[in-house]
């Protein structure tokens, strides 16, 4: 039972089964679900919803923003 996890034993090579891009221009090959329709709709919708959204921010924003911003102190990471 060799090669399933590890290559130095020379086992099965993982099949590359990914699909190849169609030869047409990617701008025509729209495989992402109806992006154009979604995009233009979403653009308009976001604009219309901005006012509602700003109302909502008033509701959910930390009540004491100054304290919150001051107390948000992190140690460096990575």
């Amino acid at each position: 039972m060799t090669g399933l996890l590890h290559s130095r034993y020379g086992g099965v090579v993982a099949e590359r089964t990914h699909k190849t891009r169609p030869s047409s221009s990617p701008r025509e090959g729209q495989q992402v679900e109806s992006e154009d329709a979604v995009a233009s709709d979403t653009g308009d919708r976001i604009k219309a919803e901005l006012d509602d959204l700003l109302d909502e921010i008033d509701d959910v924003l930390e009540t004491n923003a100054e304290d919150f911003v001051k107390s948000y102190v992190q140690k460096g990471g990575e």
């Binding site: 990914h18 891009r21 729209q30 495989q31």
Partner: peptide
């Protein structure tokens, strides 16, 4: 190239990158 080096996503990436 006949290959898609990013696991079948190349076309979708190109469409969205352009968009």
């Amino acid at each position: 190239s006949d290959d898609d080096p990013i696991g079948g996503d190349a076309n979708d990436v190109m469409v969205l990158w352009d968009e």
